[in-house]
């Protein structure tokens, strides 16, 4: 089996929202350049897939799409970093210390940050969702809110960001669907999967390739960006749905991997 391919989708979120299209603000990079991908780190990536391989399902080429906002915080940060203080408190109260008093100060992180204006607003909202102590056994977990923060990861209070939504760091771009010629012709079979992967909050899009279908095929990435705006004195996120076409090129070259100097069929 050859290496799984990663296709990184780098998006300048703010610029793409302003322009209303992705074409000039998207950079696609894959790790199949040595197989023959072209247009690396441009909007015109054509991902190369060596098509000739031992015919078995184990052998299918796998593609993974990983969207990134260029202005995002590093995705390698722990997921809890992105949670609001109120959400951390909720996790503490419902999962980590389920027996403790919900009114008592929860984690130190939550307690430290609870002083900010954002926190008090968010806390009030979560409190309404919070299960009563009697309902704990039912494992009701309220919706967890993301932290509103600037590009350095610092919590942004309402007063500081007032009138300047540009201060907020944008939520990560989301891939919401993959369609188009390559899907219609059954060349790729995309689906969304869950994993403990750090990217995209544990959800990612992946596809297997029918490598019998030699040729260049287009597919359409459906991407949702989020635009901050102020609503009743609070920041809200307006989803902006955009599409973008990219390509794969399935060849009848024999499968190669890093251990083999020359292309050759792997033993069945």
């Amino acid at each position: 089996m050859s290496q799984q391919l990663a296709i990184l989708i780098m998006i300048d979120t703010a610029a793409a929202i302003k322009a209303g299209n992705l074409a000039d603000h998207i950079y696609l990079i894959d790790n199949a350049k040595w197989v023959g991908s072209t247009g690396e780190a441009t909007a015109n990536l054509v991902t190369a897939v060596d098509g000739t391989r031992v015919r078995s399902q184990m052998d299918a080429q796998v593609l993974n799409w990983l969207p990134y906002g260029i202005g995002d915080l590093p995705h390698s940060l722990p997921q809890s970093f992105f949670l609001s203080p109120a959400a951390k408190k909720t996790i503490n109260a419902t999962l980590v210390h389920p027996a403790s008093d919900p009114q008592a100060p929860a984690g130190s992180a939550a307690a430290d940050e609870a002083a900010t204006a954002t926190a008090s607003v968010a806390t009030a909202r979560v409190a309404a969702d919070e299960p009563s102590p009697h309902a704990r056994g039912a494992q009701h977990i309220p919706r967890l809110e993301a932290k509103r923060m600037d590009i350095t990861g610092a919590l942004l209070g309402k007063s500081k960001a007032k009138g300047n939504t540009a201060l907020y760091t944008y939520p990560m771009p989301l891939v919401t669907n993959i369609t188009g010629e390559a899907v219609d012709k059954y060349v790729i079979f995309p689906a969304q999967y869950g994993s403990p992967d750090l990217f995209s909050k544990g959800l990612y899009w992946s596809a297997t390739v029918d490598t019998n279908k030699v040729g260049t095929y287009a597919y359409t990435l459906h991407i949702t960006l989020f635009n901050p705006y102020e609503k009743d004195g609070e920041v809200a996120w307006e989803p902006v749905a955009l599409t973008f076409d990219s390509y794969i090129n399935v060849t009848n070259e024999a499968t190669r991997n890093g251990f083999l100097k020359v292309p050759q069929m792997l033993p069945a």
Binding site: L8, D12, T13, Y27, I29, N31, E40, A41, Y68, I70
Partner: peptide
């Protein structure tokens, strides 16, 4: 933000960053 992407497998295999480093910014 200046984001650097490295094809680490490519760089280590070839012993060079050439063609294995991609940089973008916002």
């Amino acid at each position: 933000n200046i984001v650097t992407i490295i094809d680490v497998l490519g760089a280590l295999s070839k012993g060079s960053l050439q063609n294995n480093i991609y940089m973008v910014d916002n």
